[in-house]
């Protein structure tokens, strides 16, 4: 079996998430990679160990990863592959289902575990349950959750690169512009790091003391329901069942006791840090790293430690 992996790139390098997808694909068979972008990107893909061949899309429509030509390209290449895989992300979610439709295949998104060549585990209901599904399609189209697969190394391989082009089709869409998020605070549901405050922040004024830490980490700021109810911050800060479900790489809970609503809203975070003066606070039961102490003393120490570490 040979698997085609769609790789995503940024600033000339293959994204780490895509290298995780390579790991997932290697569990299924030999791996070919499809990249868009310039020769440098294709070269970067070729250096990932385990990739046997790199297909480089060269047509103009691929430049901005527009779904219509890219999906048509993937579908046109699909013939020789048993699986088509990509890391879950905006590009793959835009392109792969469309390609799957062209192939008359039901895609399997957000795979967290590969059971066998046709059986996969994926979260449903925002992670409240894990479904194991078996596909009866001849080909499988899947996206994988990068955090569940270790990324393949970036260097060490030497695959051949071959140019491919999408089949001719009328252009129904055009790229207009892209606006990268500025350095200002990221949105809660897309932030890589979240610093969240709870009742322990005591008041609206003190809640602002989270900002220097969030600035240093490029983090979004969230809040527990209790902090919202107490009026420290507006309700769009709320993380939790009735607010938002978040799953950043790093979640720092400051002065949050860990009410179940809050835990339900952030328990899928990759790494959870809890800072609380009450060693019995439920938040410590889910935290990877717990620091018991007065948050008003800990916060400046953390900032200092981050500055020192550079």
């Amino acid at each position: 079996m040979t698997v085609l992996v769609l790789l995503d790139h940024e600033a000339g390098a293959i994204r780490q998430a895509s290298r995780s997808a390579v790991t997932a694909a290697l569990a299924l068979g030999d791996v070919h990679a499809l990249v868009t972008g310039d020769a440098a990107v294709a070269a970067a893909a070729a250096r990932i160990p385990g990739i046997a061949q790199v297909l480089r899309a060269t047509d103009a429509g691929s430049a901005h990863d527009l779904a219509e030509p890219l999906a048509a390209l993937v579908a046109s290449l699909a013939g020789e592959y048993s699986h088509i895989v990509a890391a879950s992300g905006a590009t793959a979610k835009n392109v792969l289902p469309r390609a799957a439709a062209l192939l008359d295949v039901q895609p399997i998104p957000d795979v967290v575990s590969v059971v066998d060549a046709e059986t996969f585990v994926r979260p449903i209901y925002a992670g409240s349950a894990l479904a194991t599904v078996r596909s009866s399609d001849a080909k499988k189209v899947l996206t994988v959750r990068a955090s569940n697969f270790d990324p393949a190394p970036a260097e060490g391989g030497s695959a051949a690169v071959r140019d491919v082009t999408a089949p001719e089709a009328p252009a129904v869409s055009e790229f207009v512009s892209i606006e990268r998020s500025k350095s200002e605070r990221p949105e809660l549901d897309s932030a890589r790091v979240i610093v969240s405050g709870g009742r322990g922040m005591q008041n609206e004024e003190n809640f602002k003391r989270l900002e220097p830490l969030a600035d240093r980490l490029g983090a979004a700021i969230g809040a527990s329901r209790a902090a919202v109810d107490a009026g420290f911050v507006p309700n769009d800060y709320q993380v939790g069942q009735t607010g938002k479900i978040v799953a950043p790489e790093l979640y720092i809970a400051v002065g949050i006791s860990g009410a179940i609503q809050h835990l339900a809203g952030m328990k899928d975070s990759k790494v959870i840090v809890a800072i609380n003066k009450d060693p019995e606070a439920p938040i410590f039961q889910v935290a990877d790293y717990g620091l018991v102490g007065d948050l008003f003393e800990v916060l400046p120490q953390l900032e200092a430690a981050l500055d020192k570490a550079g």
Partner: peptide
């Protein structure tokens, strides 16, 4: 159980604002 994990199972909700 404690109160909050219990309340969670009532699935109560009020529009926050």
């Amino acid at each position: 159980f404690d109160r909050l994990s219990s309340v969670f199972l009532s699935a109560t909700n009020h529009e926050e604002d």
